[in-house]
Write a protein that binds this DNA or RNA. Structure first.
Lengths: 124, 124
DNA sequence: CTTGACCTTCACATGGGTGTGATAGTTGGA
DNA sequence: TCCAACTATCACACCCATGTGAAGGTCAAG
């Protein structure tokens, strides 16, 4: 598919798709026109990129860990690079932290909203 | 405490503490010198701000939800503003999304790291 | 009284993600 | 054939979080 369709499917503007390409996160083929041609699997990939960006992870890091996030992890393991491993562990730990933190705040918001609703239902 | 001590305790540079103040996230008292004086409870608050920023939440939103994240939620509920409620629910939902997303990727990283370790332990 | 560590404000810079517009080439249908 | 919709590249600009440095005030210790 071309860039417009991918943009529609992922709700990510073409401008950003080109930017992610520039950052090395996606590498579409080119048609004879020069038009970018995206494979279907890139839809998922772009969604993943968006999620990671929204979670505050910069493209540099995304580029590094993206190849390791596929469900078919068995294939990719061939060079036991200790530096890569350290980095993955680091990002893994950061994610755990973020999750715990967000869970806390999610619960706090739940409580607050419930309290609002309760206050509105009983007194006023 | 003054800004330097708070900076040390929270690992957030003074520059950023002033910035958060400018954004309305913290409001320290002033000594007769003009020096900022921070209460102890602001340590936690700054840590919360950092966590939210790290999670990709902009200061504008942080300012809006921060008053609702205290553990003493019972006190603050007095005006049942429906707009506020809608916003809180929106942020709450976004947090849930982020959590689910991060959990997925955390698990993917876990699997990948395990696979690396396994590959290193058996073959080479 | 001076020095050094702290604080103040102000301003300018930078980096990353994003928006927008100019200019131009391609394509497919009326 | 021409128009509309798409695409391409390039450039400029914006917001936001952050760094950095200048110029100066406060204060405690020597």
């Amino acid at each position: 598919m071309r860039i417009g369709e991918l943009a529609r499917k992922t709700d990510v503007p073409p401008r950003m798709l080109r930017y992610y390409e520039e950052q090395g996160l996606i590498t579409p083929r080119r048609l004879d026109n020069g038009y970018r041609e995206y494979d279907e699997y890139l839809v998922d990939r772009v969604r993943k990129i968006r999620g990671l960006l929204d979670a505050g992870i910069p493209t540099r890091i995304i580029g590094a860990i993206l190849p390791c996030l596929g469900q078919t992890s068995a294939i990719v393991v061939d060079d036991p690079d200790p530096e890569l491993r350290a980095m993955l562990v680091e990002q893994h730990d950061k994610m755990i932290e973020r999750i715990a933190f967000l869970e806390q705040n999610r619960d706090a918001l739940t409580r607050y909203i419930d309290a609002m609703d309760h206050a509105a239902a009983t007194g006023d």
